[in-house]
């Protein structure tokens, strides 16, 4: 799909903040995505139209979150939205996997992706964590997350992006504090080591996230 056509798509108008729906904005996002270290990533604040993001958060409150625990993580997660019954969440899933939105992400990242996506919501509470890993699995090409809550700097829950040394993460180079309605994407590669720092306060960290596949 042509980027101009994608930007004027009805679903894009409904969901995406107007400030991102022009080629100048996309060119700037593309430049930042490529140049950000320790690996290609970008944060997009005020990403969705405000009424849409509020609707999603409200819809999530009706969803069941299941406990997930292993050596690598402890948090709660919904089932994949591919099979979700909730109307608003289903619509969001369709929007993110739509041809128009995929064209938008491809224009920012210069990566070829398909309309196959994974999507679920995660809830981190006090003591929950996700230790360093690179996300490489099957055909995952771009990881994404939408923050639906906000945490203070001293409450933990930051997304830490690691520098790599000899094939292993060495130390965090960037720490992103969750901010409401911020959408983050990063390129999945042998360098994409990241961590969700333990939440150390009684504040909920809620996100919708997953991967775009190649």
């Amino acid at each position: 799909m042509d980027i101009h056509k994608a930007l004027s798509d009805k679903e894009m108008i409904n969901w995406l903040n107007n400030k991102y729906r022009n080629t100048k904005a996309i060119a700037e996002l593309n430049k930042k995505f490529k140049n950000h270290s320790p690996f290609s990533h970008i944060e997009m604040h005020d990403f969705l139209n405000p009424e849409k993001v509020k609707t999603i958060l409200k819809a999530l409150k009706k969803e069941e979150f299941l406990e997930k625990e292993s050596d690598l993580f402890k948090f709660m997660q919904t089932h994949d939205f591919k099979t979700v019954d909730n109307k608003e969440l289903k619509e969001f899933y369709h929007f993110l996997s739509s041809e128009a939105f995929i064209t938008f992400i491809e224009a920012i990242t210069e990566l070829k992706i398909s309309t196959k996506i994974d999507m679920s919501a995660s809830l981190y509470q006090n003591t929950d964590f996700l230790l360093p890993h690179d996300d490489r699995l099957e055909k995952r090409k771009i990881a994404y997350m939408l923050y639906l809550t906000e945490l203070k700097v001293n409450e933990g829950g930051k997304l830490l992006l690691y520098k790599t040394k000899a094939g292993h993460p060495s130390e965090p180079e960037e720490a992103i504090t969750p901010k409401f309605n911020t959408f983050i994407i990063f390129k999945v590669s042998e360098k994409s080591f990241h961590e969700v720092e333990e939440v150390i306060a009684n504040t909920q960290r809620i996100t919708i996230g997953g991967w775009f596949h190649g």
């Binding site: 402890k74 006090n126 003591t127 964590f129 933990g156 333990e198």
Partner: peptide, 9 residues
């Protein structure tokens, strides 16, 4: 074997 992450408690 692994040793579980030790949390802020």
């Amino acid at each position: 074997k692994y040793l579980q992450y030790i949390n802020n408690l």
